[in-house]
Simulated scan of single mutants.
Amino acid sequence: MKNKFSWYSPLTQNEVDEAWDAGILTVDANVLLDLYRYHEGTRDSLISSIEKLKCAKWLSAQTAEEFFRNRKKSILSSRKTFKEAQDEIDKLKAKATEVTQALKSNRLVPSSITEKLSKDSDELLLEAAKAIEEEIKKHPDFLDDDPILEKLYGIFANSIGDDFSEADKKTHTKTAEERKNKKIPPGYMDKDKDGDRSYGDYFFWRQVLDHAKAQAKPVIIVTSEKKEDWWEIISGQTIGPRYELLKEAYEVTGKKALIYQTDRFLSYALERLGEKKNEKAVAEISEISELRYAGNAVRKTTQTCSISTSTNNVGELSVILGRPVRNFTGSGHFSPQMAKPPRLEVSLIKGPSGIPMYKLGGGTGTVFDFNLHIKATDNTELLPEGLYVFEYQAMVE
């Protein structure tokens, strides 16, 4: 039994050492794209760990293609988060002013209390706004000068796999479609993506296994994926890689595969290198990955407008959530564009049964789009799948 199911047996120390010291290390596209989303310390820790490991570093053609196709979008997205943070500070300022004005009109409340509250809140919010401004100034302009890209060029120099031939691509596309319909991992959770994008995970997987087989070496796969078509998830807890993936990797390559999420990989890499644990970096990687996982859970978003002008946009944003998550974001658009970035008010008017206590917010970083965010207040609870309908009003003051 042990010999027949050896792919399922825990790795021996010799197998672990062989993979980390003489195997092949490869990553998916989001592992690279996330480098633009991390703070400098986290980014440097991950890149440095990859550089120092003894094993060979290699990228699939699928990973390289997705990285270069989405690189600029990731850079611009990271900039947008600063604007969203500034919007949140502005909303707090407006709310603080509203509260202090209400207290001032209450004659039973001593004026000294409202004066102190107003003064302290103004100072704290001003300090926060200045801190965000400083972070914006320090944040590199990766579109103009990109040291991350130069590092990646060095790490993966002459280590990029070839894409499928036209004939092989047709064959693998057919296989990917069949696997998707039969829910064979990986990639079937991407069935709602457009065109070849729904086959991306399988193409990546196939190219990695083909390369590992040709090199006759074990492979370490680092992925940012958190979905069930990569991981065995029981009662909301991730147990490990899907057994189908472990089995297929062994059958194709003759070696056991090691599959890690990015945060777990960094922890193990630092340990292998004999370096100090970087809990802050690991936590940030986990948080970024969780945010993407929540975004991927959104199956469909529709928007209707009752008022649509350059100064006032009122409507509903409907989001279909495909699986339970702790938080998710829905995005809408302004047509015509607003005269300037508006103030946004949002409420949840309809949702599936069993919604736990939640926090709701929104942000407008531009004059042409906006985001609505909902998060379970208790981190141990999940927002149930189903239809969520948000009512919003965007106003230019």
Rank of each mutant, 00 (worst) to 15 (best):
263 D>F: 06
319 V>A: 08
302 T>L: 01
113 I>P: 00
101 Q>V: 02
310 S>K: 13
106 N>A: 12
18 E>K: 14
101 Q>D: 15
160 I>Q: 02
181 N>S: 12
39 H>R: 15
8 Y>D: 11
70 N>K: 03
17 D>P: 00
187 G>Q: 08
231 W>Y: 07
144 D>Q: 14
14 N>L: 10
164 F>T: 11
102 A>K: 13
304 T>W: 00
309 T>D: 05
283 A>W: 03
309 T>Q: 08
286 S>C: 00
329 T>P: 00
306 S>G: 01
295 G>Q: 13
204 F>K: 03
382 L>R: 15
168 D>M: 11
223 T>I: 06
328 F>S: 07
392 Y>C: 02
215 Q>R: 15
104 K>F: 09
329 T>W: 03
333 H>Y: 12
326 R>I: 10
319 V>E: 03
4 K>H: 09
91 K>I: 03
336 P>W: 06
265 F>W: 13
355 I>T: 12
9 S>R: 14
255 K>I: 00
252 V>Q: 09
98 E>Y: 10
222 V>G: 01
10 P>Y: 03
43 R>T: 02
174 K>Q: 13
24 I>V: 15
199 Y>S: 11
143 L>F: 05
57 K>M: 05
175 T>S: 10
248 E>R: 13
163 D>W: 05
384 P>M: 10
361 G>D: 01
308 S>P: 04
310 S>P: 02
280 K>S: 12
149 L>Q: 11
10 P>F: 04
51 E>D: 14
340 K>E: 14
22 A>K: 14
285 I>H: 02
53 L>I: 09
305 C>S: 14
42 T>Q: 03
155 I>R: 03
288 I>F: 02
19 A>H: 08
338 M>D: 02
86 Q>F: 04
152 L>T: 05
236 G>Q: 07
313 N>E: 12
12 T>V: 06
67 F>L: 09
181 N>I: 05
86 Q>L: 12
377 T>H: 00
166 E>C: 00
92 L>T: 00
56 A>R: 15
